[in-house]
């Protein structure tokens, strides 16, 4: 392996940064959601990189679990977005003040 671990980690951090920025700034719920996926992928990348660096398969197993949870999350999250869109005719999170009663 000639690529240093830190390179992977920096890429991972950058992708995570992009995810955070997206979540914090975008108003389209679907894009926000995709940015969350982006963050998950960034983390997965670190897992795999560490697994290789430490020669331990546990990282791969974690990635597997992260993916399973992400799948579940996407299914439920998209269902919620659909339900909200049916009622509000919008997926603009700035319009959604459901948390305030």
């Amino acid at each position: 392996m000639t690529v240093p671990l830190s390179a992977y980690l920096i890429l991972s951090a950058f992708l995570f940064f992009l995810g955070v920025v997206g979540v914090a700034t975008r108003r389209n719920a679907l894009i926000v959601f995709m940015c969350i996926e982006l963050m998950l992928n960034a983390v997965n990348l670190s897992f795999v990189a560490f697994a290789r660096s430490l020669n331990s398969m546990a990282g791969h197993v974690f990635v597997f679990f992260v993916m399973a949870v992400a799948t579940a999350e996407v299914a439920v999250g998209l269902a919620i977005i659909i339900a909200i869109y049916r009622n509000r005719e919008t997926v603009d999170v700035a319009e959604l003040n459901l948390l305030k009663w």
Partner: peptide, 10 residues
């Protein structure tokens, strides 16, 4: 407590 998701995210 604005109720807007964005603010909670921040």
């Amino acid at each position: 407590q604005s109720g807007y998701v964005m603010n909670y995210v921040l």
